[in-house]
């Protein structure tokens, strides 16, 4: 029987400093056979293992059809991610995955894709944005609505500016607190919905960020007549095994590591915003 708990070795082949606390690791499987059989979907995650410290679930930002290294954008928040921050090119890690359900790629084809994200750039939706941009003809208009607390929180700012210049692509940004170098909106991400011109019949919406932000955004979207069935969201919980065994990531009846992290909104609706689940 295959051991779902045991990682394989990967090597850091590139490291990009995104902000003082956010970094992206590019990882190569040292065993070519493993590299050949590895295949992920946007929105899925890997368990990354730092030698002698432990494992953390980290979402995958690289394209599933890209043969090169697997990319992970990581924020230093806990014991493991702070330790991983010190990794340099040539260092080794453990990796297991990919795990969980990703974004609804098939359902999104030929639709307008609306991405709503808050917080520090939200890696799970970056993979989806890149996926759409690589296969532009298969999707309708791409709208990215991003909210941040402070104007310096926006990582990938240059990338957002580049996306903004692409045809049939709309990028709207809002910061809770504006500033001299912030030409965009001020307020919560929800202030952007009226300007976004979302077509409720053509759109599929993918949300990722703090749950309170997603809940407020969903309320706005429903008020704009976007049907609940067109809404998908990615959530986070404590995860230790990634394979549905350890019990930490449960939200009501759902194991986030198996049934998520991307959920269809109607499935998660009874539990969203209920304190304690």
């Amino acid at each position: 029987m295959h051991d779902p708990d045991r990682p394989v070795e990967v090597e850091v082949v590139d490291r990009v400093e995104e902000t003082p606390t956010i970094y992206t690791l590019h990882l190569r499987f040292t065993d070519p056979a493993v590299a050949g059989s590895y295949r992920s979907r946007p929105g899925q995650f890997n368990m990354l293992y730092l030698y002698g410290v432990g494992e953390v679930p980290i979402s995958i930002v690289s394209d599933p059809d890209f043969d090169g290294p697997v990319e992970h954008t990581i924020r230093s928040v806990g014991r493991v991610t702070r330790g991983m921050e010190r990794l340099r090119v040539g260092d080794r890690l453990g990796l297991r995955g990919p795990y969980g359900r990703g974004w609804p790629l098939e359902a999104a084809e030929d639709r307008d894709v609306v991405i709503v994200t808050g917080g520090l750039g939200c890696a799970p939706v970056v993979s989806m944005i890149r996926y759409v941009l690589e296969r532009r003809e298969r999707f309708g208009r791409l709208t990215i609505l991003q909210g941040v607390k402070h104007t310096d929180d926006l990582i990938w700012r240059r990338q957002y500016e580049a996306w903004q210049r692409l045809p049939n692509t709309q990028v709207l940004l809002a910061a809770d607190v504006g500033g001299p170098n912030w030409p965009y909106s001020v307020g919560k991400v929800t202030v952007l919905f009226d300007r976004a011109g979302i077509d409720p019949e053509r759109s599929i919406v993918m949300l990722c960020g703090p749950e309170i932000m997603m809940k407020a955004s969903i309320d706005r979207l429903l008020a704009l007549n976007v049907p609940p069935e067109a809404l998908w969201l990615s959530i986070e919980r404590n995860m230790q095994c990634g394979v549905g065994h350890c019990g930490h990531c449960q939200v009501g009846p759902h194991f986030v590591c198996q049934d998520g992290p991307v959920f269809h909104y109607p499935v998660l609706r009874p539990w969203l915003g209920v304190t304690g689940f």
Partner: peptide, 26 residues
């Protein structure tokens, strides 16, 4: 009840580490 936590237990000389699971409680 099946909840469990995972943790690493490295050897003092740094050459080896055991990855353990242990019963946990909600």
């Amino acid at each position: 009840c099946f909840c469990h936590a995972e943790q690493d237990e490295p050897a003092l000389d740094g050459s080896r580490t055991d990855h353990l699971r242990q019963w946990d409680s909600c």
